[in-house]
Each structure stands twice: as C-alpha cells, then as structure tokens.
Design a protein around this nucleic acid. Sequence first.
RNA 1: UGUCCGGUGGUGUAAUGGCAGCACAAAUCCCUUUGGAGGAUUUUGUCUUGGUUCGAAUCCAAGCCGGACAGCCA
Length: 606
Amino acid sequence: MTTPRPAPAPASVPAAPSDCIRDIVAEDVRTGKHPQVHTRFPPEPNGYLHIGHAKSICLNFGIAREFGGCCNLRMDDTNPTKEEVEYVDSISQDVDWLIRGWADDRLGLKPAGQTPVAQTVNGKSDFHLAPAGPGLPAPAPAPLEPFYASDYFDQLYEYALQLTRKGLAYVCDLSPEDTDEFRGAPDRPGRESPFRHRSVAENLDLFVRMKNGEFPDGARTLRAKIDMASPNIWLRDPVLYRIRHAEHHHTGARWCIYPMYDFAHCLSDYLEGITHSICTLEFEVHRPLYDWILEHLDLPRILPRQFEFARLSLSYTVMSKRKLLQLVHEKLVHGWDDPRLPTISGLRRRGVTAAALRAFAYHIGITKYNGLTDVAVLEHAVREDLNRGALRRLAVLRPIKVIITNFPAGQVEELAAVNNPEDPGAGVRKVPFSHELFIERDDFLETPPPKYFRLRPGGEVRLKYAYIIRCDEVVKDAAGQLVELHCTADLGSKTGGPNAGRKVKGTIHWVSAAHAADAEVRLYDRLFTVPEPDAGGDFKSFLNPHSLEVVTARCEPSLKEATPEQRYQFERLGYFALDPDSRPGQPVFNRTITLRDAWAKEAQKG
RNA sequence: UGUCCGGUGGUGUAAUGGCAGCACAAAUCCCUUUGGAGGAUUUUGUCUUGGUUCGAAUCCAAGCCGGACAGCCA
C-alpha cells in the first residue's frame, strides 16, 4: 500500500515538505483514522498577526490542501478584556491575503451567526459545527464568517455542568493569590483547596449562581478536580472558568463567566470536528490536560489530538505580541502595519508578496527545536520572488547633476529600455535622454579606492540603456562642494551603434533632469541593531535609529503611472512598492529590500 | 535540584537501521549594458560515553547542554 501523498502543488509553491507533523498526518490518513483531515488556525484577536503566525497558517492550510482537507479560521476569544473587533478584522484580512490563490479553497468558515447544532451520535447527545465555504462539502447558504470560540459558550457551559455532575469539577473560593500559593511550584507539590470536597449539589448551585452574576470578579472559580500533587502543574486542579463582568466583542453582555483557554480550546476543536490540533511548543505541557478534559466528558465522536511545533524566531526583530504592542503604543513605529514590523500587514505594506512569505515558510521547515532563523532567509525569499516579476525602472535616490557637453541642450532622445530581463514578455519602454541628467551621488568618487568601477575624473562609465560617458570636469562651489559633472558621451556607443560593443568597467543608472518625476521614497533597514534584541536587557535600547530614511527621488517618467499591485526594481538599488500614502501626482514608494550588493561587501573589506 | 520536550556545518533543515543531502550565509571563479540575475567550484556537521547490530544521526542506557511549565492570559 502506498501512502496517499498530496497532489502536486502548483508551480508557485514547492512540493510538500516532509516534517514531523506531516508525517503523523500522513500516517493517520494511511490508516484511515479520520474520514478527512481537518486543521484549524486559532489566533486570539488581541493583536495583529505576524510572520510567526504566517508559519502556522502555512502549516495548517498547507496540510489541509496537501491531504485534501480543510482548515478552519477560528477566533480564540475567551478573554473579553483583551480582545477587539479591530483585531478580528485585521486577522481575517491577513489570512485571506496570505492564502489567496493557494489554499483559499481550503478555508473553513461558517454561515454568519451559526452556532453548533445538536445531534445524536451512537445514542449520545452531541454538538457539531461543520465548515462551509467554496470547495468545501457544505454549501454556503449565508454570508460566511470565521468560527469563534465564543460561539460555543453555551455548549462549554453544558460541558462544565457535566464535569461538575460527575464530581470532576468544583467551585473554589480561594483568592487568586491563595490559588497561586496552593498550587505549589514545579518542584514542590501543591495543596488541596479547602473547597475541593464540596458536594456536587453545592457545586452545581454555586456555578449556576456564578453564571447568573451573583458574585464579583475573582470571587470564585470553577476548577477541574485532578491531582494537586501532579508533577505537571497544569494538572493541579486547573481553573476552568473565571468571573469577568465585562462586555465581550462578540457575545456582548450575555456572559459574566468566561472559560479558560485549556477548557475552551480542546472542546472548540471537538465541536468543529478538528482532527489535528497543531500548536506551538509551550502548549506541550498542557497536552495531558487537553486530553483529560475530552476523555472525561461523554463525547461520542472521535477526539482531536494536539501536536506541537517550534514557533518562529527571526534575527534582528521581535515577535512577541507584547513587544509589538509596546512598539505600536509607544509610537516607536507608525502603527501595526509599519513596514519595519514583522507583522503580516507591515510586510505586505512594505511590498513583500504572499508568495514570498509562503516560500519562506516552506524553506524554514517545521521541527520541535527552538532555533533562531536568520532574517537573510526571509530576505532571500523576498528577492527571489520579486526578481521574477518586478518591472525594472530608473530612479536616482540622491542625485548629482551631469551635463553632457556634446549633446545639444533642448534635444531629447527616446531610448528603449527592457522592462524585465527575466521575462522577455514584459516588453520594453522608452526613457528620455537629454543634455542634463541626474546620476547617483554614490556613483562618482574623486579619489576612488581600488576596484571601484564607477565614474571618476577622467574615467568612463556606461549609462544604462544609453551612452558611454567620460567625466571631463568636476565643478565645485566656493565651499568646495560638488555642484555638477561635465561629461562627453561617445555618441556611437548606444545599443545598435558602431561602438555599442565597447567594454567599460561600470554601468550606472540615470534620469533625464528635465523629465524626472519626484517621488517620496522610504528606505527601510532592520528595526534592531542586534540579532537577538529580546535575548536580555531592554529590547528597545537596541532599536536601530536609522531604520527609516526618507528621500526625494528623481524617477523616470513612466513611474508616474505606478500601481499598488505592481512591484518595481529601481535598477541597481532594490525593490520598491507603492505605499497607500501616495496621492495623485505625489507617489510614495517603500523600499521592500535592497538588491544584493557585492560592492558594499567589497568596500567593507577595505 | 520536579515534569515534559529537544540537541545534525556559522544558521535553518533532510535522511525514519544501509553513500550524511538541501537551502541560506561565507569564499573563489565565469558571465553580465544592473557590482542584479544566472552558472561553476570550495570551506565547515551527527553533544559525549558506553551498548545492541554485519551496519547507528536513527534503537537502548547514562551523562552533558538547551528550552518550556508555578496567569482567574492564550
């Protein structure tokens, strides 16, 4: 028997990788354990998604598409004090953007307003909420929305009552501080709560009154009755429900008790028919509790199983929501979608494509080892993707003026320029050439070091798509500052000319001064100056003061027609994308990433 | 001095008892009207010690090192 491995992926995505989680799923598929693989992506709507979530999304949706399954998007919203609709909206948008054209046919949503439906399985009462969506078994009778853990509060409450009736849960009156004290420590057993042995009837009565709002916040909790001496702290009578008189973004004021993660998550997975519940390593210790809850309730269907993998750590950035939130709230960056942030919305605004993020996720793999991924891997994935599709354009970031003394003032020549050497189908465009040009300040040096191939006094260089020029004169002002360069062009050296084949060391980019369009260009660099900003000390002290530089660039005229979806390579400089701040006639470009720069490396050796 | 989980080149990973491979990074060279892209070549690795086996990165034992866990957060 052969393992039913997934159908080959489209060309834009590498073949399915092999990893410790997919191996398990493949085995479960082989043995026919589940009729269909069903995963889920369960963010808490208390912040924006980041590239670490992208790794998880690619894993969960990747498995769904590789094994012919489905992946539910679920808001894990059991804590009303931290969650907001702004976040659920941004999460939905980011997930949609990341999987569009790749796994959007695997996205499990549900009809708006739908909650789990009662059914009978093997003579037992049960609840279930199946996904609907394009390409999924169930059709979509209504507008679709994500799943919400908060949609299960009724069922969760029923399950809590069931546990209580079985004598497996009790209401505890210990204060938060005392609960901590009684729990003990990792190497010291806990003590039993004095309320642990209340009667079932009293527990039921108290829990109902908790729900009815008779007690203030923190006064009581519902706890599982497991083992206060367990070496696993999460088995020491964990809190299942707490009292919070707070408005919930999705359920309003209907509840004043809210389930804890451990209670809500395993049961949410069960209610949705999840087969493989994939989470990060820190939940490994919770797995016995995940299983305990499911196994001690009368659940007729097959139970979900939890598997863990290592979360992503990327060099030169921070990933924790707390730290990202801090950067945003303290205005150290300009919002959640600041292009310097590793948030999905920030990366998107910066110009990184979804395909590049997916390729990155594929390359880093899935393991249970907590490593640090070099941000160079991300940068490589971004360059590789952009190189294929970006339109080449000429733009000068820091201009100096060049006068072509043997090219008549007032004359304009239209030169053909290739749009993308990687894609002949992208065609050519015309760029105007004239008497007065701008070139990059960095492309001229009066006393250049060895191996400097660009313009120097008396030296020659080729202007991309145009002529070879020689620098005859360096004009300076009274203060000794460079004003302009006077050059002569070899008029026979342009493409098709008699001297076209003449070799010169360097080729530089340029723009005709009279035709140039101004654009604001935002140059981004790493947000932090050290590889591990959160390794110790105050991470904010490692912020890179030069992470953003804004310049006014001189651009070739065709850039006036730039569009938001298109990616551009400013030749020899990097990849750029139009920012939403752009206004008609006032384009703003973000530098997504620089080109690899062999000269910078050479110059550094100095 | 608890429980659980991990350790493969500089980094991230593959090999599931049978030739330690890939990617990134680094380096050298070729090519180039982008010092881009592309091509070629090279350097560097199974935590340690035992054991099982014809054969161990893989299985076993002990040790060493690292991570997670003591929220009424997720």
